[in-house]
């Protein structure tokens, strides 16, 4: 069974639809990239997948391995976070909050998991540093480590390279690609289509005409579409 199946989904605010008839499927190990213009509803789609907002209509079917809070989320950073007084460890550990249950404090295992994920991101030496003193790339790695603490199998990344310089962005993409090779399913929002085509296995384009397919299909369609600038709804 697929990890995630979306059927006839419509999204929007206050019953005004901004995306309609969205259909796509995510299998285990996929690297799905969601592209589209600003304001086309990418972030709304992601929030819907996380149950932060509810869809206008349609269904989201989750596979057995995805029940509960098994999705690790990397939100776009807010201004408040950029100068938030917190140590790296405190933030990564907060990724374990779903595992707390009724306990008030984090256990030794939680802390061990946090350290492992810091190591995985190559920032084990930053553990005691303050988050607001880190570079943009380091901050993103901290938030990625936090997402990994929340869920080891699926990651939802919202514009993970925004505000990073080209070098840091490249190494962020490499890091995500490595995680995908380890078997983690990646769902990523980006407006940087050129860069993601190097890594993604599937593309979901939302906007005037929705498209879902493998990267190869997307490139073929793009090549054939350019002169005519028309095309049916391939979804």
């Amino acid at each position: 069974m697929a990890l995630l199946m979306v059927r006839d989904l419509s999204l929007g605010y206050d019953s005004r639809a901004i995306v309609t008839n969205l259909n796509f499927t995510v299998e285990e190990g996929d690297y799905l990239c969601i592209v589209g213009e600003n304001g086309s509803g990418k972030t709304t789609l992601m929030k819907t997948l996380l149950h932060l907002t509810s869809p206008l209509s349609g269904r989201i079917v989750k596979g057995d391995s995805l029940s509960g809070g098994q999705i690790g989320y990397l939100p776009q950073q807010t201004q408040v976070q950029r100068d938030f007084p917190a140590s790296v460890m405190e933030i990564v550990l907060s990724g374990c909050q779903g595992r707390l249950g009724r306990r008030p404090f984090y256990s030794r295992e939680d802390k061990e998991l946090a350290r492992q994920n810091l190591k995985r991101m190559g920032i084990a030496d930053l553990e005691k540093r303050s988050y607001r003193e880190l570079s943009g790339g380091q901050q993103q790695r901290v938030l990625l480590a936090r997402a990994l603490c929340a869920a080891g199998r699926v990651l939802l990344l919202d514009e993970p390279v925004t505000g990073l310089d080209p070098g840091a962005a490249r190494s962020m993409y490499e890091l995500i690609a490595d995680l995908n090779k380890e078997g983690i399913t990646i769902i990523m929002i980006s407006h940087d289509v050129e860069a993601v085509l190097d890594y993604a296995t599937h593309i979901l384009h939302i906007g005037e005409d929705n498209f879902f397919g493998t990267k190869e299909e997307y490139m073929e369609r793009g090549a054939g579409k350019k002169p005519a600038k028309e095309g049916g709804d391939l979804a």
């Binding site: 932060l52 933030i91 929340a150």
Partner: peptide, 17 residues
């Protein structure tokens, strides 16, 4: 710990249950 989580990042906190 929960107050910290909600203060630092509310969307993430909701997504983590």
């Amino acid at each position: 710990n929960r107050i910290f989580a909600v203060t630092f990042d509310e969307s993430f906190a909701v997504s983590a249950g």
